[in-house]
Nucleic acid binder design. Structure first.
Length: 1028
RNA sequence: GCGGGCGUGGCGAAACUGGUAGACGCACAGCACUUAAAAUGCUGAUCUCGCAAGGGAGUGCCGGUUCAAGUCCGGCCGCCCGCACCA
């Protein structure tokens, strides 16, 4: 497309900076840095460590090394952190800047399956390719800390951490100091049971634990049988086996986490996903819901990311209330609106709710016909996929269960329904339905003719919901605007002369009258009156009294408090906090993941492999393709001789299980997010064989000072990592509660694409530019619009970084990606624009180097203006790097280079910059274009002083930043009319500034004959004259 | 539907706390150098009226606050991202 980067033509100067030269010098300096271990950062305690320096831990989200190689999005973030790290090193920091590979998991395995080669091999190849590509950018990683999550020396510790969670429980009472829950080792729980203490709650909110209650009521832990004690303890573990409904993807042959399922399809591959009950390993992340929520407040993250996590955790405050039911134990509901209980006219349970099974079993005295209908409905609802559920969300379905409940507030007998709009997974799987004040309940009540009872009205009568008539646009001509609409209709909804779909009236009689008036003239029928709309906001209670309590006239928050107290006093329920967050399902039925360090005896009890026996290495098997099935099957079961073994051979401690006990290994593997949930800790001490990281190392390096990566991990990875780190902190293994103090997301690099008038997209190779900004589809000649879209194979607009480096060199590539726009913005790749950065380097080269001889160009004559500009540049680039504004830093360097370019004949003369100026410029440039800077630094004969990238950042003199004269704009009535040149001193003081402005001839001319009412003089900025 | 973000030349963008809108780059036009081209250097350019000097309008749209608004406030419109029957 572009030919700007063609190699030098024959008669061009021999020492030009071009792609060929860049591709020669860049690998040369990369090797020199590597040979000298230039970016190796020693740890505290190591010989070369300098404790006097401050530390800077800069973390990149490590990549999945896919077979496709690096995407242009990778170097965007990596260049940004590279610039910061190089800068911080020059500013005298100890810089931890590591890189590794997130290599277990679905993408790697999918690629392996696609190519038919073993994942271990394809992954190694992909890692080697990724490493080669990253090194070609000259990134200053400390490669001595490199690891992959697939390395047994690494996943040994992933398994070890799993065992720590297995061996821990969450003490909701926590420690008194922080007043928050915390994890403790299981043996502390056992000690508590043995001492006869009250069983702790599982989570911060209440839970059922009948076994534990039993233990307490027996009063003697020791008297319980071993199986019961085991069951009780297991129910407290942070890593536990639980049965939940999971997202099962038959095609991928594995369970997926909620964030791996998009619109009912797998994130990888887009295969259908079914909901299945399954027993598998889970993490009790819900125990940490509150901490994960409140600790967000102290983090320096994008507010949008924090919001996403808050919403994912989804805290809501309300109450749990028991409703008495005939023939069944009380039905417990969760509600955030206990104040509306007097308006609860029916109840709904999820189709999976035990009450349904109870009724179907004939235990509730419900007649045969109702039971049959119930059974059919439940079967129908169960077979609905997630996609169908979402599509059907608007239309309410359900059936009457045949049982009734008693509303404890007013004693009314209300029907219990089942409907799929109530989810078993949230709250208690049952609700009290208040159709007057909830949109879903309202829609359901309307559909099934259930009474609606209003119990809250808006404090402001104007904001009251009204009665609604649905009218199709154009159904009533504007001329028929009935007076009644003007009189009673809601003016926001009905606008003059134009009919919208809904007309809302304050009172039903107005609505009915309106409908009657229109009936004989139009097709509008009185039964289009919908009735009053649900009012879901806060207000004042009405119709809410019984003999013991009255909420009437109370505002909503007050009513909530009063009714909750009454409910608690009556023993009907209690205050309760609920979270949307689910426990983290951790088992995958795949090959390419960390094996669990767990075995089962023949009774199905699980036992940990001892720390000393870790890692449990992944067995070599020939057939690792997924077992495609509607029924989840663990893949490692294919490795029969590995899976079936003895406790001793598996490494279970003899104190836990006799060595000759036959056992079966856990055949599930861990999900891709396991290895990435703690890698930031391993970097602190990456090769430590004895610990996952020494405390001395992690104490020094943690917290991360900057974590940079894509916002697509806003919930998954970033929440899981926070959870693991919190647990490790509680157990004394990690130095900080939170792992990522400052988090930043780079924007996505998109691409131009072309769109036909019917909105379909055309691949870029089928489009040509006709005239400037006008594009046509080659085949048809039809004009197409240029739009911005994600890079995709189908649009043929994917950029391969290797090609760009070959055409321009890595320094140009780095500069271009940083110059495109703000780091956090998404921005389109434009091949044309790369040339600008390439030309900048060529010009900078010409400033520094004589193109015909290759000798450095220096002068003895220091130019005062250039010196001042250089000081400004040093200041600006430093400040811009600190605020991650690389685009403006580069613009400033371009400007300086333009100023330092010898014009016309001076080109042939010596340099324009002195040696000292040249050196400072090179150092400022070096974080951005490190190879270029190194090469010229070396040409200046500076090799004896070490690498350019090891030089201290130059200092600027504040005195050099001010100009002797400043141009001040003079505006009259806020419009700039003229500009005057003033000595800096005069412009600094409002008094002298004002006087100077008024004394100026041009200004006098402009205000001649007019009265100056007011003068605003902003020191050093401008003067504004207000005329009469 | 709910939550978050963003709308500035032909294009990517800049303007950090309200104070010269469009820095810097791309593309474009002209000039110089050249036999010519490329490369390089210089100059121009938001739109509009005007030969020019100069005037007018202008940061998605409408309104407000202010001596002064891209920036603050209210209301619309459009685009992007996330969540989505969570009681």
């Amino acid at each position: 497309m572009s030919n700007t980067a063609q190699p030098t033509t024959t008669d061009a100067p021999r020492h030009r900076y071009d792609a060929q030269r860049a591709n020669e010098l860049e690998p040369r300096w990369q090797e020199a840095w590597a040979r000298a271990d230039a970016f190796r950062q020693p740890n505290p305690g190591e010989p070369a460590f300098d404790a006097s320096r401050p530390k800077f831990y800069c973390l990149d989200m490590f990549p999945y090394p896919s077979g496709a190689g690096l995407h242009v999005g990778h170097p965007e973030g990596y260049t940004a952190t590279d610039i910061i790290c190089r800068y911080k090193r020059m500013k005298g920091f100890n810089v931890l800047h590591p890189m590794g590979w997130d290599a277990f998991g679905l993408p790697a395995e999918q690629y392996a399956i696609a190519t038919g080669i073993h994942p271990a091999q394809t992954t190694r190849t992909a890692i080697d390719n990724f490493r080669r590509q990253l090194q070609r950018f000259g990134f200053c990683y400390d490669w001595s800390r490199e690891f992959g999550t697939i390395d047994p020396e690494y996943y040994k510790w992933t398994q070890w951490i799993f065992l720590k969670l297995y061996d821990a429980w969450f003490d909701a009472e926590g420690d008194e100091r922080t007043n928050a829950g915390k994890a403790r080792p299981i043996n502390e729980l056992v000690t508590r049971f043995e001492s006869g203490a009250r069983p702790p709650r599982l989570n911060q909110d209440a839970h059922e634990f009948s076994d534990a209650e039993k233990a307490q009521s027996f009063g003697a832990w020791a008297s319980l049988d071993a199986a019961t004690r085991r069951r009780i303890i297991d129910s407290y573990r942070l890593a536990y086996i639980g049965e939940t409904t999971v997202n099962w993807c038959p095609r991928l042959g594995t369970v997926l986490a909620n964030d791996e399922v998009i619109d009912g399809k797998s994130e990888r591959g887009g295969h259908p996903v079914l909901r299945k009950p399954l027993r598998q390993w889970m993490f009790r992340i819900t125990a940490y819901a509150d901490r994960l929520l409140t600790q967000l407040d102290g983090l320096d993250w994008f507010e949008s990311t924090k919001t996403m996590q808050r919403e994912w955790i989804g805290r809501s405050d309300g109450a749990e209330i028991d409703f008495a039911v005939d023939g069944h134990r009380p039905l417990r509901v969760f509600t955030t609106r206990p104040d509306t209980i007097f308006g609860a006219t029916y109840m709904v349970v999820a189709p999976e709710h035990p009450l349904c099974a109870h009724v179907l079993a004939g235990l509730a005295g419900v007649d045969e016909r109702t039971r049959t209908k119930l059974k059919d409905y439940i079967a129908w609802a169960k077979n609905k996929s997630d996609v169908e559920r979402q599509e059907d969300a608007k239309e309410k379905t359900g059936v009457f269960t045949g049982v009734s409940a008693i509303n404890p507030a007013n004693g009314d007998k209300i029907p219990v329904w089942t409907a799929d709009y109530v989810l078993m997974g949230y709250g208690t799987g049952a609700i009290m339905a208040v159709p007057a004040h909830d949109e879903r309940d309202h829609a359901f009540a309307k559909a099934f003719n259930i009474p609606i009872q209003r119990v809250v009205k808006n404090a402001d009568p104007a904001g009251e919901p009204g009665f609604r008539i649905d009218v199709n646009e154009g159904e009533v001509p504007g001329s028929q605007t009935p007076d009644i609409v003007q009189k009673y209709g809601s003016p926001e909804v009905y606008t003059e002369g134009r009919w919208v779909r809904q007309i809302i009236f304050r009172a039903q009689k107005h609505a009915s009258e309106f409908a009657r008036t229109l009936k004989h003239k139009t097709s509008i029928h009185p039964d289009k009156v919908v009735g009053f709309l649900p009012y879901v906001g806060d207000g004042v209670n009405v119709n809410s009294s019984n003999k013991e309590v009255s909420l009437d006239t109370l505002p909503t928050p007050e009513a909530k408090r009063v009714i909750t107290e009454w409910i608690e006093k009556k023993g009907l329920g209690r205050r309760r906090v609920n979270y949307k967050l689910r426990d983290w399902t951790f088992s995958r039925q795949r090959y390419w993941g960390e094996p669990f360090p767990i075995v089962f005896d023949d009774q199905g009890n699980h036992y940990p492999v001892s720390d000393a026996a870790l890692p449990v290495t992944l067995p070599e098997i020939a057939d690792y393709a997924p077992i495609e099935s509607d029924d989840p099957t663990a893949l490692l079961a294919k490795a029969t001789t590995w899976a079936r073994t003895t406790a001793g051979a598996a490494g279970v401690s003899p104190e836990v299980l006799a060595p000759d006990t036959p056992v079966t290994r856990e055949c599930n593997t861990m999900p891709g997010s396991a290895g990435s949930s703690w890698y930031f800790l391993r970097y602190c001490d990456a090769k430590n064989p004895k610990e996952f990281a020494s405390r001395a190392a992690s104490d020094y390096w943690m917290n991360t000072d900057l974590y940079l990566g894509g916002s697509e991990h806003a919930v998954g990875h970033l929440l899981y990592s926070r959870f693991w780190n919190n647990v490790l902190f509680d157990l004394g293994h990690a130095p900080t509660r939170e792992p990522f103090q400052k988090l930043f997301h780079q924007g996505m690099i998109t691409s131009f694409a072309y769109q036909r008038s019917d909105k379909t997209l055309v691949p870029v190779d089928q489009v040509e530019e006709k005239t400037e900004g006008q594009y046509i589809e080659t085949a048809t000649g039809q004009p197409v619009a240029q739009i911005v879209a994600k890079m995709s194979k189908s649009l043929k607009n994917v950029i391969n970084p290797d090609d760009v480096i070959a055409e321009y060199g890595a320094d140009t590539f780095r500069l271009y990606e940083m110059y495109m726009g703000p780091l956090d913005a998404s921005k389109p790749w434009n091949p044309r624009d790369i040339a600008g950065c390439y030309r900048f380097l060529q010009r900078a080269w010409r400033v520094c180097v004589d193109e015909s001889t290759g000798a450095p160009r220096v002068t003895d004559q220091q130019d005062a203006d250039l010196e001042r500009q250089l000081h400004r540049l040093i200041k600006k680039v430093g400040a811009d790097i600190e605020r991650l504004a690389f685009n403006t830093a580069i613009a400033a360097m371009i400007e300086f280079t333009n100023a330092a370019t010898p014009a016309g004949p001076a080109q042939k003369a010596g340099g324009v910059l002195t040696r000292d100026q040249l050196e400072r410029f090179l150092i400022v440039l070096s974080p951005f274009a490190p190879h270029f800077a190194e090469e010229v630094w070396d040409k200046l004969g500076n090799a004896f002083r070490g690498f350019a990238c090891h030089q201290p950042w130059p200092v600027f003199d504040p005195a050099m930043l001010v100009d002797s004269e400043i141009e001040i704009p003079i505006s009259i009535m806020g419009k700039v009319r003229t500009r005057i040149l003033l000595p800096a001193d005069a412009a600094k003081e409002p008094k002298t500034l004002e006087a100077a402005a008024m004394a100026h001839a041009e200004v006098q001319k402009l205000i001649a004959g007019k009265e100056v009412k007011k003068i605003i003089a902003v020191p050093g900025k401008m003067v504004n004259l207000v005329l009469g």
